[in-house]
Design a binder for these strands. Structure first.
Lengths: 214, 214
DNA sequence: ATTACTAGTCTTCGAGTAC
DNA sequence: TGTACTCGAAGACTAGTAA
């Protein structure tokens, strides 16, 4: 029994917002593991913030925590891409006006050279900042080949390693989704670079919806 | 990285029927584990019959085996029950004419007593045999409380332990889905018992479709 | 560059048991 | 009945390295 299977099992009984009264022995029986293991796994899920758990001498009641629901939703979206009827890999995001910071670091020569070599284009000096759904983002990125853009340091500051993914913007424009390598769990904000000024080309303003495909 | 996550990762890249050329290092990088672990897990999935794998000094190409696709489909259906829009727990099956065997063992006193006590009804002496989709069945059963009907032995033969699940037939009739306890992976055939003769009540003949809800 | 074996370490499991 | 602790055994992980 892996953690995620247990989470699904609980979600099916408790629902996304409800709760279920059960026992560690019952769970153990279902997965054919020991009562001790069921108990421990349950506590682990609680510690990980995925479920809410109240356990006592009369059994335990469990409900999904928001983080647990989000995790399952991400799994669901991944599988939907596999089984869903003709769903192409796609990610929608809303434009957020950036701080002009992107223009600066995209144009650093050390990055620039790698962009050219590894992505196949010289990016416009500016980035398109998009707000996306984290679950959708994870599902979208899963299965794409990450391209590693190495970081570097100057006397003043350090520039971290970047993960880049080749994408298409609005179904037409070659581009790349980029994000810091460091963050284990991606934020809900991503940046897109392309050979041209995407804002101009597609007449995009703040709040407008953009579609990335892969 | 658990096995199932890896399978999803591969499925997203290879598709259900295609294949993908990759390397253990790339997979390892994605899940942030060692190359060795990725290699071993891949071989495990192959040994388990979930993927087809050709590995060599120039990388490896992977495709989903039918069993792997089935496993993912089961997961997908489970999650669909959680996230799907208003999908109630439901299982469809096609009637298969039984051998009259059900009539015999359902009426064994030792079973009968437990059916009454644990299911809350005295079953009609006969079973309705249904052919179902294994993935749907697994997803349906996941989350239902199994009720254990103990087996017993006579001088002539032994009667195994039965797992029973309370269900509703055609949205109206109280009933129970029963299956042998033994089998780890359920067959695609189940039996249904109810207080009344389901065949008569719903005018069911071979091949007719029946809906169970829970 | 690959895959994958071996060996040592670390994690996870379940029986026994306390409460 | 429950949950959950300890601890010895079984399994999984990574580093080093062969091919």
């Amino acid at each position: 029994m892996d953690d995620e299977k247990l989470l699904v099992f609980l979600a099916l009984q408790a629902g996304l917002h409800g709760s279920v009264k059960t026992s560690t022995a019952r769970i153990a029986g279902h997965f054919r593991v020991s009562q001790q293991t069921a108990s421990r796994k349950l506590r682990n899920l609680k510690k990980a913030g995925l479920i809410r758990l109240f356990a006592g001498p009369s059994g335990c009641t469990v409900s999904l925590a928001p983080e647990g629901a989000r995790l399952l939703r991400a799994d669901f979206l991944s599988l939907k891409q596999v089984f869903g009827p003709g769903t192409k890999k796609m990610l929608r995001g809303k434009i957020k006006d950036g701080l002009g910071e992107g223009r600066y670091y995209v144009s650093r020569p050390y990055y620039l050279k790698q962009f050219k070599n590894l992505l196949g284009f010289k990016p416009f000096f500016g980035t398109l900042n998009l707000i996306v759904d984290i679950a959708e983002l994870n599902s979208f990125l899963l299965g794409l080949h990450p391209i590693k853009i190495e970081g570097f340091e100057t006397d003043e500051r350090s520039f971290g390693t970047i993960r880049a993914f080749k994408v298409t913007v609005q179904g037409k424009q070659q581009a790349a989704l980029i994000m810091p390598e460091r963050t284990a769990h991606p934020k809900n904000e991503i940046e897109v670079i392309a050979p041209t000024n995407l804002r101009k080309k597609f007449k995009l303003g703040q709040g407008r919806q953009v579609t990335l495909t892969a």
